[in-house]
Amino acid sequence: MARRNQHSREELRGLAIQAVRDLVVEHGLEKLSVRKVADRIGYTAGMLYHVFSNLDDLILNANADTLAQLLDAMTEPADRSARDQLHHMAAVYVAMAREQTALWKMVFMHQMQNAAEVPGWYLEKTAALFARVEHSMAQLAGGQSHEQIHLAARTLWGSVHGIAVLAADDKLVVAGDVNEQAMIESLLQHYLNSWAGE
């Protein structure tokens, strides 16, 4: 690794974000601190505060990488049907919850300290997920208003998220040890049939 004074600001930012991801996978979000991130990459905590405003800023930047990975994996060829796209997105979402649990939880469970507002740049990234769901759902029900599509996308994805939480926490045994992908298929089949008026 390069010596400290050989890292540019952007390189330091990348090192810190990767350290956040590694530490959360190894020890969990609750044990994360700016000092631990700094120690991992051989810098002082004070130096990191020149790049990130606080621990929340560090976490949100790490989460942005996870969201980008999630959205990239969700991308389906444009010629696939809207139903196929939604099924693929849901399967990817639940798979990440199961296979990259710590990073997935950091995205969806992190709470800003001192009730601080989530910055606009990050809200835009999370909105991209719902925009993709809305786009596919709009193709299944002509004539629905923007407000109806907005609500339906969040209702459907809230249900997918609930299954993902159960899968991530290995709590599906409470539901009779049902396979999470089978639950997703059942949810989407019935919800989308209703949504499309079938």
Rank of each mutant, 00 (worst) to 15 (best):
M1V: 08
N5Q: 13
Q6G: 10
E10Q: 15
L12C: 02
L12H: 01
G14M: 13
A19C: 03
A19M: 05
V20C: 06
V25D: 15
L32Q: 02
V37E: 02
A38C: 12
A38P: 13
A38M: 01
D39I: 09
I41S: 02
I41C: 01
G42Q: 07
G42R: 09
G46I: 10
L48D: 12
H50Y: 14
V51M: 05
D56S: 01
I59S: 02
N61G: 03
N61M: 08
A62S: 07
D65N: 11
Q69H: 06
L70D: 03
L71E: 10
D72K: 11
M74F: 00
E76I: 05
P77S: 05
P77L: 03
R80K: 09
Q85N: 06
H88D: 04
A91H: 12
A91F: 00
A91L: 08
Y93N: 07
M96A: 07
M96Y: 04
Q100D: 14
T101I: 01
L103T: 00
L103P: 01
F108S: 02
M109I: 12
M112Q: 10
Q113C: 14
Q113A: 14
N114Q: 12
A116R: 15
E117F: 03
V118N: 02
G120D: 13
K125S: 06
A127P: 08
L129Q: 05
V133M: 03
H146A: 14
I149F: 01
I149Q: 02
I149E: 00
A153I: 01
R154V: 08
R154F: 04
I163V: 09
A164G: 04
A164N: 01
V165W: 07
A167E: 12
D170W: 00
D170A: 07
D170I: 00
L172W: 01
A175T: 11
A175D: 05
A175N: 15
G176V: 07
V178W: 10
E180K: 00
A182M: 12
S186F: 13
S186R: 14
Y191E: 13
L192Q: 10
N193E: 15
N193H: 09
E198V: 08
E198R: 13
